Simulated assay, not measured.
Amino acid sequence: MSRIVISVQLRWSDMDAYAHVNNVEMLRLLEEARIEAFWRHPAPPADGGWPTAVLDAGPGAQTTTLVASQEIEYVRPLGYRRSPVAITLWIGHLGGASIDVCYEVTDQDEGTGQPVEVYARARTTLVLVDATTGAPRRITPDERAAWLPYLDEPVRIRRRNDRDR
């Protein structure tokens, strides 16, 4: 199983009156990482980008995605700093027309690149939708092949997992 680690730069405006990243802004950070990891870029980056970036996100795209649900567990406050946060992503469920994207928001050890100090864990369920009909559409074989190596156990969110027992 592989995971994707995306660095996302914080903005000064992400911080709230309590001197930590606001809960709404935390969801924006997750969205930025998700788009980087799963949406095809019009001009691929020099490194080629992620092999998971197979959804067309440009104007006139034939597929849109809808957020069906999101759940986030805040582990500790994330204060503003100039260094980016590391957002680790993987697929917790690969369905017929939907995927669960799982996340951990962490610092990254500069020497090893490994995640340290978890700030939040989250899950987003995305439904793939045909842009013409507005109906959910099946995940294509190419999308499934690109995402399957990143399929792993769903993120463990304390309250949800405790409730499911």
Rank of each mutant, 00 (worst) to 15 (best):
M1K: 02
S2E: 14
R3I: 08
S7R: 15
V8F: 01
V8P: 00
Q9M: 14
R11D: 10
S13D: 11
D16K: 04
A19Q: 12
V21H: 02
V21L: 01
N22W: 02
N23L: 13
N23A: 13
N23G: 13
V24F: 00
E25V: 10
L27R: 06
L27K: 02
R28P: 00
R28L: 10
L29E: 00
L29F: 02
L30N: 04
L30Y: 13
L30I: 07
E31I: 05
E31Y: 07
E32Y: 12
E32K: 10
R34S: 09
A37K: 01
A37V: 03
W39F: 04
R40G: 07
R40D: 11
P42E: 15
A43N: 13
A43R: 10
P45N: 12
A46N: 08
A46Y: 08
A46M: 12
G48T: 07
G48H: 09
P51K: 07
P51H: 07
P51N: 10
A53G: 08
A53D: 11
L55R: 02
L55T: 07
A57M: 04
G58Q: 14
G60F: 12
Q62C: 14
T64D: 06
T65A: 02
L66M: 12
A68P: 00
A68T: 04
E71V: 06
E71C: 03
E71S: 07
I72F: 09
I72R: 00
I72L: 13
I72H: 03
Y74A: 07
R76V: 05
G79S: 15
Y80E: 09
Y80S: 08
R82Y: 03
P84T: 03
V85S: 03
V85H: 01
V85W: 05
V85I: 15
I87S: 02
I87F: 02
T88R: 10
L89Q: 04
L89K: 00
L89F: 06
L89G: 04
G92D: 09
L94T: 01
L94R: 01
G95F: 11
A97T: 13
S98V: 14
I99D: 02
D100L: 10
D100K: 08
V101A: 02
C102T: 11
T106S: 06
D107W: 04
Q108D: 02
Q108H: 01
D109Y: 07
T112K: 10
P115A: 06
V116W: 05
E117K: 15
V118K: 05
V118Y: 03
V118T: 09
Y119T: 05
A120T: 11
R121D: 00
A122I: 09
L126H: 01
L128Y: 00
A135C: 13
A135D: 15
R137Y: 03
I139V: 03
I139P: 00
T140G: 11
P141H: 05
P141C: 07
E143P: 08
R144P: 05
L148Q: 12
D152M: 03
E153S: 14
P154W: 14
V155Q: 03
I157P: 03
I157M: 08
R160Q: 13
D162F: 01
R163G: 05
D164V: 11
D164F: 04
